[in-house]
Design a protein around this nucleic acid. Structure first.
Lengths: 206, 206
DNA sequence: TAGATTGTTAATCGATTAACAATC
DNA sequence: TAGATTGTTAATCGATTAACAATC
């Protein structure tokens, strides 16, 4: 149960396990094995057992893993045994889609605030909330204690906005802008860029 | 110039290099070094040189890399020295956002078709094209010779739709549905799941 | 009990880094 | 030329896999 300094590559697989377990639970199954889970996620059984063993002993020899228990423990480990309020910054097409995305329910997140700098958009409602003025971005984020932001602004201003967010106390940024954000080491960034995803495939397609 | 069997981990970095180079080119710079590029993308200079050396010798000792040339070569390697017609399947919020995304221009892709199964949506225009009936999915895709699809349907039908697409000749799927698609080995899949991105960050946030 | 599956160890495999001769 | 930077080699580092005793 050596919880200190788990390699990043292992942490990044845990949400994938959790998602598959929740799908299994939804179908009414209550027990699984590293073998079965491995087939669902495309990862070897040995690796799954090794990954989980970083955090404790969650299974039983002979029978495998009790799904509700493993879901509970993985949720705790990933800190999604709570609901995080997240903000969407930049309400273009992507911002709208992200704000209205219903895939966050039951996975630990709730969109609590939306921002845009365009006067034509400010005040309009998206998911029950009016779009806020980006002028008050730092203050509103800080007051609400929001730690996680989905950044959907144009690339040209993304770094500037990110800097402001970090100053306001944000420590996790899901970045939809097509550039690498430079951030202090205590801030986490995950990048989502569909064009990069596509180019990773075209390499293999003649 | 050993082009055969380049490790996947290297291929997956090339689009990141290409994106950074295009940004540099846009600012009017014409030359860079592995050192400078490394700072932009957060990867060591040695690794960048090693990665590129898999495909040829693109730099000059003492001066570094000529950006337009490296962009040209990387585009060829990734097969984005052309425009790929891609289809969006599933026109919910995400499908709409993806179809209207203007970040594909100059990166090798063009949204050429949209599909949905909902009669209320079929025929409505998105980016100049009417939404097509998903009933004709396989046939339309095959006729148009489309090889790449962005899959934005609900998780419950994603695997079924993917199977149909593959039968119709699709060999790359950018999957927005929150589950792992099981596909034949010659088909490439890239997964985009914002909740997984968020959970990879909350682990580090107390 | 017998069969199944875990958690863990040791062995293998692959990726990253450091260093430097080559050379622009 | 002198300084800079590449492409590449060898060394290091880390991740994955295979195997198996422990045990449910």
């Amino acid at each position: 149960m050596n919880n200190q300094n788990v390699p990043d590559v292992i942490v990044s697989r845990l949400p994938v396990y959790l998602r598959a377990l929740q799908r299994l639970a939804d179908t009414g199954v209550s027990t699984t094995s590293s073998q079965e889970l491995g087939e669902k996620v495309g990862i070897s059984a040995a690796q799954i057992r090794k990954d989980l063993s970083q955090f404790g002993e969650f299974g039983k020899q002979g029978t495998g893993y009790h799904i509700p228990f493993l879901i509970e423990r993985l949720s705790q480990i990933l800190h999604v045994d709570r609901i995080w309020d997240v903000a969407v910054v930049g309400m273009g097409d992507i911002g709208h889609a992200v704000a209205r995305y219903n895939g966050f329910a039951n996975r630990g997140f709730r969109v609590a605030m939306c921002f845009d700098a365009d006067p034509a958009k400010i005040g309009k409602k998206v998911c029950d909330y009016p779009i806020r003025d980006a002028k008050n971005l730092a203050q509103d984020i800080k007051e609400a204690g929001i730690k996680i932001v989905m950044l959907c602004v144009p690339a040209s201003v993304a770094q500037d906005v990110a800097d402001k967010l970090i100053e306001a106390g944000v420590c996790g940024i899901l970045n939809y802008a097509p550039l690498k954000l430079i951030v202090p080491s205590q801030v986490r960034v995950q990048h989502i860029d569909p064009a990069i995803g596509l180019q990773r495939m075209t390499y293999y397609i003649p």
